[in-house]
Nucleic acid binder design. Structure first.
Length: 255
DNA sequence: ATGGTAGATACTCTA
């Protein structure tokens, strides 16, 4: 089974790239973030024609997550259990082939010291609590998505440039590490201990052309699922297309 | 210190 994660930065703008990439990479499951469309406007017909079922949870203009799958999608959960109707739509979970897939678009944080930055840290606390309350550590659990945090020095193009900046502050990294300590394994890093590869490049400053990026998109697995992992790669190809998302997909294969 | 780009919406916000 192949499972992928991709922040598409508007699913309706990115449909041509999504279709082309899905046909060539052939993932069984695709977790999407920043779909930026309400559920009535979700391009379900195109997705179905591509061979996928879909569960989606979107809102106007911002955020929005979806899970596409070639296999049946069961036990869909949208948002945290204690979210109200106003909560940003950043989490969708489902069981596919016995794997509990949790797809997240972790808050950006906007700027250090703002309410939105605090919201990001609080959201990560709630994410850890969510796993404690809803998942068993012995189960096959997969957490993926746009985490908006680079975990280690090898995950940023320049430590000097990023130290203490949004996405790479000690507080964000500690909060993310606390989520990881629930029992997760960073699949790309486990399989590629020394690879400095990125999954996001700013649209500005020629970041893509200079390969000045960050690794902020992840596939994390529980211990039992990690044992079945065969590969985990970042596919840079779609980032080089015309009018790309600023993120590249990450794809993992399991036995 | 500033502004550089992109997307959705409605003349600005979020990233």
């Amino acid at each position: 089974m192949k499972i992928a994660t991709w922040n598409v930065n508007s699913i309706n703008v990115r449909i041509p790239h999504l279709v082309e990439w899905a046909r060539s990479a052939e993932p069984d499951v695709i977790c999407l973030q920043e779909t930026k469309c309400v559920d009535e406007n979700f391009p379900l017909t195109v997705i179905n024609e591509l061979g996928y079922e879909a569960a989606f949870f979107g809102q106007k203009s911002y955020n929005g997550v979806a899970i596409l799958s070639k296999f049946p999608i069961d036990d869909v959960e949208k948002g945290f259990p204690d979210d109200d109707d106003e909560a940003p739509k950043r989490l969708i979970a489902a069981t596919i082939g016995g794997v509990r897939v949790v797809n997240t678009y972790i808050p950006n944080g906007t700027e250090l010291g703002t309410d939105k930055f605090q919201f990001k840290l609080d959201w990560l606390q709630r994410l850890r609590r969510y796993f404690e309350e809803s998942c068993s550590k012995d189960a096959d659990v997969l957490l993926c998505g746009d985490f908006n945090v680079a975990m280690d020095e090898i995950d940023v193009w320049s430590v000097a440039q990023w130290e203490g900046k949004l996405h790479f502050t000690k507080t964000e990294r500690a909060a993310m590490h606390y989520v990881k300590q629930w029992g997760f394994n960073d699949l790309f890093r486990s399989l590629h201990p020394d690879s400095r590869e990125f999954s996001w490049w700013n649209y500005r400053e020629g970041a893509w052309q200079r390969d000045q990026g960050l690794r902020i998109d992840y596939i994390w697995t529980s211990a039992s699922l990690a044992k079945r992992a065969r590969s985990c790669e970042i596919d840079r190809y779609p980032r080089g297309l015309e009018k790309p998302s600023d993120h590249a997909p990450v794809i993992a294969e399991f036995a």
